[in-house]
Amino acid sequence: MPARAVAARARLCARRCGVCSTCSPTLVGDLTLDCDTWSSPDGSGQRLMVLTAEAGSPSDEALRILASWTATAGAEAR
Score class of each variant (00 low, 15 high):
1 M>L: 05
1 M>P: 06
1 M>D: 04
2 P>N: 12
3 A>L: 13
3 A>P: 03
5 A>L: 08
6 V>S: 07
6 V>T: 07
6 V>F: 14
7 A>Q: 11
7 A>M: 06
8 A>P: 00
9 R>V: 11
9 R>G: 10
10 A>M: 12
10 A>T: 10
10 A>N: 11
12 L>K: 15
12 L>W: 10
13 C>S: 13
14 A>K: 07
14 A>Q: 11
15 R>M: 08
16 R>Y: 00
16 R>A: 03
16 R>I: 00
16 R>D: 02
17 C>W: 03
18 G>P: 00
18 G>C: 01
19 V>R: 07
19 V>Y: 04
19 V>K: 03
19 V>G: 00
19 V>A: 01
20 C>E: 11
21 S>L: 05
21 S>C: 09
22 T>W: 10
23 C>D: 14
24 S>L: 15
24 S>P: 01
24 S>N: 12
24 S>M: 15
25 P>C: 11
25 P>K: 12
25 P>H: 12
26 T>I: 10
26 T>K: 14
28 V>C: 10
29 G>E: 06
31 L>I: 09
31 L>Y: 07
31 L>N: 09
31 L>V: 12
34 D>G: 08
34 D>V: 13
35 C>N: 07
35 C>T: 05
35 C>R: 15
36 D>T: 15
36 D>M: 13
38 W>S: 13
38 W>N: 07
39 S>Q: 05
39 S>H: 03
41 P>T: 14
41 P>G: 08
43 G>A: 06
43 G>F: 08
43 G>M: 01
44 S>T: 10
44 S>I: 04
44 S>N: 02
45 G>R: 01
45 G>Y: 02
46 Q>M: 04
48 L>S: 12
48 L>A: 11
48 L>K: 10
48 L>G: 02
48 L>W: 11
50 V>C: 14
50 V>L: 14
50 V>N: 13
51 L>M: 14
51 L>N: 13
51 L>W: 12
52 T>E: 15
53 A>N: 12
54 E>I: 15
55 A>P: 03
55 A>Q: 15
55 A>H: 15
55 A>G: 07
56 G>T: 03
57 S>E: 02
58 P>T: 05
58 P>L: 02
58 P>G: 03
61 E>N: 05
61 E>C: 05
61 E>G: 07
61 E>L: 05
61 E>Q: 10
62 A>L: 02
63 L>H: 07
63 L>A: 05
64 R>G: 13
64 R>H: 10
64 R>Q: 11
65 I>Y: 04
65 I>S: 01
67 A>P: 00
67 A>F: 01
67 A>V: 00
68 S>T: 04
68 S>D: 06
69 W>L: 06
70 T>R: 06
70 T>S: 01
71 A>Q: 11
71 A>Y: 02
71 A>G: 06
71 A>M: 06
72 T>A: 06
73 A>G: 02
73 A>V: 06
74 G>C: 11
76 E>P: 00
78 R>E: 15
78 R>M: 15
